[in-house]
Design a protein around this nucleic acid. Structure first.
Lengths: 333, 333
DNA sequence: CGTGTTAATGTGTTCGAACACATTAAATAA
DNA sequence: TTATTTAATGTGTTCGAACACATTAACACG
């Protein structure tokens, strides 16, 4: 169309230089006129590279919370395998920082194009981030954020805002003068953000007179845990509303069952089987869905579509904070 | 690898016949061994067809509910344009059945590969479906379902279940002996399903003693509408909980503002600007998000990915019924 | 034995972009 | 003027699949 060869057009498109002003203008004019967009399919066919996406996540056998994340990875992997995207997973023990470091080392030495990871250990994750940077491996974080000096992508929820969502639900269903406990079970550092958001909501709300206190428990030994819960309730008789900041609400419910029966409000996280059971039975009022499946799936998908079709990347994608009751739960699993 | 030419392999892959048993077995063995999957990119490049997806939806200028659906179409259209997928839209007047028929006629005579539509008029939609079938045009329905003899795809929500979700929320926040009104504003036939689901929930719930009655209004004349609402409330003093079955909750709230102030519970649909405003202010307690943007986007995306990459198609995709409060609304818009 | 017929197999081109390589034109030095 | 450099432009091949077309092999028939 411009009266030049494809070689010249190619040089204009890729700015490879060696083009006369006259030729450049002719080509540029035509490109604008026809609003030229490269065919991403043909481009990809020619480049014909296989991309490696390595994923570092807690072993779903050690903590069932990670089962859907693992499935999200598998789903994305199957979807993009035919396009030459290779996904490899590394499981670490969420209770063992050294296993995280070991697996991350493995992942990094195989030099993938991207590392997707859930950075549940703050300090160690910073170390991994540094190494990835040195090895020019892009990093995508999911599940929780860590503040880092480096450019990387985050896919997940705003944890503070998710605390506020829990608070707004609590506010709608709670009795006028009830007191509330924020329950951390096996607390990880990022859960504090949920507590902060929760408290902030009630602080902002004028006329709110609910006492909000927070309490940590360890669930390693079941008997000990149940006793701790029992003791806590005995010394806080007027508390009958609970916000559990992770997926372990069902453990709390199980502890309740050894105590006297009464109306309690419980808001928790994540659609684990036992949580779903208690949601259906009414022992849990609301669950907040953290979408681990979607986070992991999107992490892989975004990078794959970026590599394959040149799609843009967000630096931070905050996923919706879904509110789940017995009646809409079926659609989220 | 099998010691035959690509022509023979091609004949085996596409079952074009004229292959000796010996050659077939050699090729088949290798295909299985290497778990051969055709490269969808190369396939698509060769086929190099442009696909036409035509969309029939209510004019977003006539009813703002459809604005996000329209945006979803545009987004999908931009995403798949480079791959040779052409999307064309036809707007009809949601208050004028004849305009629906006229636009559908236009859409069908241009013989697209797929017709995506929101079938808000029952009878007329059946007619369109019939014609599409005769012209071998696949159909994707979104927003609401119509029972049809024909195979077609539906993307949207289970409306009856969405009524149940509303009921479960109502149940959590309502006072013990309060009465509830189901409000239909400019009722369309599919809204009855929401009413049915809502009532079903309370019928199933043992020990529930809330009176539930339903009432239709027309909002064409604002003054008349406000008077009707006022009259209705006067003759039903004990009703202070409302379930509005479409996106028009804000109109009801506006009518309330001319009446005496008091605590009222309102659950409605859709994240329109005025609804969002009243949600933030607390005049609306919950909104249910029907995801018009996602429905429309997925309708186009599913078909595009099917054509381009041979992805499978669901026959019915029920989207999650999202519960929205002031604190998580921001993520859904 | 040659010829036609059909079954079986092989070859060449195309899609759009990327890139290596070849060629031509203009400018400079010998 | 001719050789040499370098700037500018053109040509050919490749990616993996699809498909048109060409070729070979096998066998029957006059």
């Amino acid at each position: 169309m411009a009266g030049v060869s494809k070689g010249t057009v190619d040089r204009v498109l890729h700015k490879r230089g060696k083009v006369s002003k006259k030729a450049f203008e002719k080509v540029d004019k035509v490109l604008k006129e026809i609003d030229y967009r490269p065919n991403p399919i043909a481009r990809n066919l020619k480049i014909n590279k296989t991309y490696n996406i390595h994923v570092l996540l807690p072993d779903p056998r050690k903590d069932p919370y990670w089962i859907p994340a693992n499935e999200g990875i598998i789903e994305a992997s199957n979807q993009f395998m035919p396009f030459g995207v290779m996904v490899k997973k590394y499981f670490y023990d969420p209770n063992d920082r050294s296993s995280f470091l070991e697996e991350s080392r493995q992942a990094i030495i195989s030099q993938p194009d991207v590392l997707l990871m859930a950075p549940i250990f703050d300090n160690e994750s910073h170390e991994v981030l540094k190494q990835c940077c040195e090895n020019k491996i892009s990093v995508v974080l999911f599940n929780n954020h860590i503040n880092s000096f480096k450019e990387q992508i985050f896919i997940g929820q705003d944890l503070k805002q998710s605390g506020r969502v829990a608070a707004s639900l609590m506010d709608k269903v709670i009795g006028e003068n009830d007191e509330i406990a924020i329950i951390h079970i096996n607390k990880e550092p990022h859960m504090q953000q949920k507590e902060n958001g929760f408290k902030e909501f009630f602080k902002e709300k004028s006329g709110s007179k609910h006492l909000v206190l927070s309490k940590e428990f360890n669930s390693a030994e079941k008997r000990r845990f149940n006793q701790d819960v029992s003791d806590f309730l005995k010394s806080n008789k007027s508390i009958n509303a609970f916000f559990v900041t992770n997926s372990k609400a069902y453990i709390l419910i199980e502890a309740f069952q050894e105590l006297e029966k009464r109306e309690r409000i419980v808001i928790g996280y994540d659609l684990l089987k036992p949580n779903m059971k208690y949601l259906k039975e009414g022992a849990i009022n609301f669950l907040i869905h953290q979408k681990p499946h979607r986070q992991a799936f999107l992490g892989v998908s975004y990078m794959a579509e970026h590599f394959l079709f040149g799609k843009g990347l967000p630096t931070q994608e905050f996923l919706p904070i879904d509110i789940v009751t017995s009646e809409n739960a079926q659609y989220y699993i």
